[in-house]
Design a protein around this nucleic acid. Sequence first.
RNA 1: GCCGUCGUGGCGGAACUGGCAGACGCGCUGGACUCAAAAUCCAGUGGUAGCGAUACCGUGUGGGUUCGAUUCCCUCCGACGGCACCA
Length: 891
Amino acid sequence: MSEPQLRRKYPFDQIEPKWQRHWLEHKTFAAKDDTAKPKLYVLDMFPYPSGAGLHVGHPEGYTATDIFCRYKRMRGFNVLHPMGWDAFGLPAEQYAIDTGTHPSVTTKKNIDTFRRQIQMLGFSYDWDREVDTTDPHYFKWTQWIFLQLYKKGLAYEAEVPVWWCDGCKAVLANEEVNADGTCDRKGHKGVYRRPLRQWILRITAYAERLLADLEHVNWPHSIKEQQRNWIGRSEGANVEFAVAGSDLKIEIFTTRPDTLFGATYMVLAPEHPLVDKVTTAAQKSAVDTYRSAATKKSEIERGMTDKEKTGVFTGGYAVNPVNDEKIPIWIADYVMMGYGTGAIMAVPAHDTRDFEFAKKFGLEIRTVVQPPAGVDPHGFTGDGVSVNSGPITGLPTPEAKKKITEWLGERGLGEFAVNYKLRDWLFSRQRYWGEPIPIVHCAKCGTVPVPESELPLRLPEMKDYSPSGNAEPPLAKATDWVNCQCPQCGGAAKRETNTMPQWAGSCWYYLRYIDPKNAAAFVAKDKEKYWMPVDLYVGGAEHAVLHLLYSRFWHKVLFDLGHVSTPEPFTRLVNQGMILGEIEYLLFKRTDVNGAEFEVSASDLINITPMNAGKARAAAYHKDDPNRQVILGYPVSEGALTRTETGFALKDNRSIRVHMQCHKMSKSWGNVINPDDVVKEYGADTLRLYEMFMGPLEATKPWSMEGVQGIYRFLGRVWRLYCDEEGKLLVNDAAADTKLVKVLHQTIKKVGDDTEALAFNTAISQMMIFVNELTAQESRPRAVLEPFALLLAPYAPHIAEELWQKLGHTKTLSCEPWPQYDESLLVETTVQIVVQVNGKVRTRLDVPAQIAKEELEKLALAHADVQPFLTGKQVKKVIVVPGKLVNIAAA
RNA sequence: GCCGUCGUGGCGGAACUGGCAGACGCGCUGGACUCAAAAUCCAGUGGUAGCGAUACCGUGUGGGUUCGAUUCCCUCCGACGGCACCA
């Protein structure tokens, strides 16, 4: 591949560095805090500068926003488009532990690489606003915001069971634990619960607003839905059950208070504090055994074993407040301590879980909701009509809920309640490379915030950052740093040794860009007011519930404190889709007992599962093999294949079908495309344009090197429209013919409309149509080529600038106004009308655009190609859509 | 299991509020240029039948609404993403 250097179709290797330098030196894209122009704040999710460098996924979103920004500048907007680094985090620290290099050194190096790579793509960032979350001038304000939260009572310490990851030797947030019990960051398996003193942010206090305000943002439906699910609001009632023979009360939460009359037992979570008190002597050993087994399992393991329900009777009884019936109290691990009150009333007739449990343990199942006719009431969880339910008998479910809640309220037995799945945010990490939490622990004064005047609180220099493994953060070893004076009483005190999680710095970075050098405030009020909110935010969907929920939370706190002027930070959010590796073809082979290999047609396989072991890329079973012997699939080159009616098959043996697949780019799949290589071979403009041409921004799509070459050819053709092989200008002042002018104006309209709508792929195809049209012509009129350079500029800015300069302009085209199209030129004088008979196209008519309906109908009916389809039939109806078609309904 | 998104040629994908399905690109086929190749340019390219004009079929499946459905409604199938004993 790399031997004969591809002949340059145009000198991108000279043009691109030239213009990148020009833009940087002239600060072409510096945003001015200029209130006269309409503002536009376009934000990219800033990257974590990993050692691996830029990935082709990064430029996808960055190119999209860059095109939008460049376009909007030409439309007269004052655009803020910044970039920075989310640079705290584990990999740099891990690297430090492995090599002894200080994380700040690694971080700086990685940032330099990322900056170089990003600048090499010609993005129009305002580099004077670059931020770095590890810069003390930046994290000073991260710490400051933490103190505002602390002062508002939104940050607190607690000894709580937390997710501990043996692999990372650190606590994970709920959000960092995968559903299968592994760590989200590294996939480590040893993740379990352990109690630890933690800093926690009271995000639950904002649950209602975080949910409600989703109504007001223009975000993808799926992201909003994910946030709603994560917050998990549900309405119901808290109800108190007395414990029989004692003064104890057990509070439960239910979303179905209307089924209270069907409660035949109660379940406590094994960790519930009242378990000991309700357990009878006879049941004590059984309960203890069950409980210790349950605590050994993590909450995730419990969730995963979605098989048999388990539980133990405590021996105690509760009294159902609605009918004074005694019901047994059980403990079972299908009830979680972390949700609601950790206790439930069990209504086996109308709750799936309770139903299963009751069946297993032979507990009473009592129907209290009558389902619609024909539905089995046992295990019916939908809405119906209450039966056998005292005061609410006969009421439909929604009314029954309301009425019984009122009834409980009047008697002091319960009340309306709202519950959330959302838990408070575990905010501390037992690691070195993060923002120190600006808190001092004093024996006399307790927890004391570091005075704001002493911020930033820097990390101490350390030689050994390795975590001790016993949950003692590495900072504890920096005794000179830890031992300090209490800011309040002046006595001996110790600093907090936990650090903040990586999410902290990214919670507010979009605010710092607005005023990145301000030493007196995290952002000046007037500037904040001018630039906020962010008009467009583009990034990956993987941040749906983490970063995006956390930053909304912080923003709302800052809003309540009067520091920012908008309740939501990001007006519009767009997720760019993932770029997958190239499509590969797999040939499946089976080995028989003698070791001979047989090729197997993919059409005979089931359960084809991608895998990566040795050379094999997928595993499958033969559809007729009851023994399920594993058959492996190996990559095969496209050249060995041929097309058949049913798909791709081997050239040599057409009965052997191959399987097509593609997956996420990753080192292990060996399908990673490095942007550096693409830029070197084809140039940045090609990379930008290709990534936008692949498909809709939001879609997941596979990489194709041939597609890159197609774009490269296109840019070569663009270049040759303007100049010859020696670079001599071909453009002349000859008049453009009307057809060309028309295509130009169509292109101006479509590229403008599509860019506005972020439909970059179709904008590019329109530019291709324009170039194809012009290539077919002899003349090269300036009147169409000049505006075209401007249209191309947001997409392929380097080549556009160079051509603009060749056309004789001395200033950058970045500030030129966007070309205007002339509506009158787009109007067709004659149009082609489709004539259908019963919905099928039978002929086409070229007619004047203004033709009368009746005239058109007459022409259509009389047409020679139409007549044969009408003979022997009666015309029932004729539909005429002006400018489009005539449809004759005949029978 | 629940929630969400989506199924269009050989491939990536177009198609405004229901109105010519397959724009544009890739790939492939043929041609021009060349000693030859690369590059470039031109032409063709959903399937089936036919020399042909043309005809029939065709937007995951089955149905419905409509003069007309890739688009709207219902059923089922499949893919992807998220959540997962949340009371």
